[in-house]
Amino acid sequence: MAGVSSSAPTPLAKYKLVFLGDQSVGKTSIITRFMYDKFDNNYQATIGIDFLSKTMYLEDRTVRLQLWDTAGQERFRSLIPSYIRDSSVAVVVYDVVNRASFINTTKWIEEVRNERGNDVILVLVGNKTDQTEKRQVSVEEGDAKAKEHDIMFIETSAKAGFNVKALFRKIAAALPGMENSAMARDTDLIDVKLNASASTNPTASQESSCGC
């Protein structure tokens, strides 16, 4: 599938992205921000799984992302492996104000490796950066953990709309067959959120780059 064919018109490529992480770290929020550019303080707890899909029009192709939003509660853990199956991308989310959720990312990463081996793009995401004063996990720690597992890393705030598009841009750029594509900079994926006008949280604008 990861062909380097740049000449032939590629058919619509479909990628499955699965979002993992402890309860209430903001998996649903990140997805909703990406899909609808909105935020709500209280999304219904995801029971088992939820799906959304989005088509992205890139300069040389169109890709369809199928987003699998999973339940965070420990009790649902035994269902997760079947959700990870066939996924191209696994996004492991933690909450920067909740240290336990950060520690648990190790388990989630293992879960993905068990199911998909190295056949998957893994991204570690520290969410809720808007809550600066309560932060329990530093950027450096997150970055170190990502390096340790040899996976990508980014911090986001779904609430402030910070870096959410950057997250998906990183993912899109890493998708199989995307290596040579310059899509990331020039398409609708450009993070319009950089002007913090629409953002609800003023702290967001201060951290404007994704550190990648």
């Binding site: 029971i47 088992g48 799984i49 269902l79 959700y83």
Partner: peptide
């Protein structure tokens, strides 16, 4: 890849309330 374990958790965990 769509079996009940994928689409039916909230049906049975909440008796359709969720």
């Amino acid at each position: 890849g769509l079996t009940s374990g994928v689409f039916a958790p909230s049906w049975f965990v909440t008796s359709f309330a969720g």
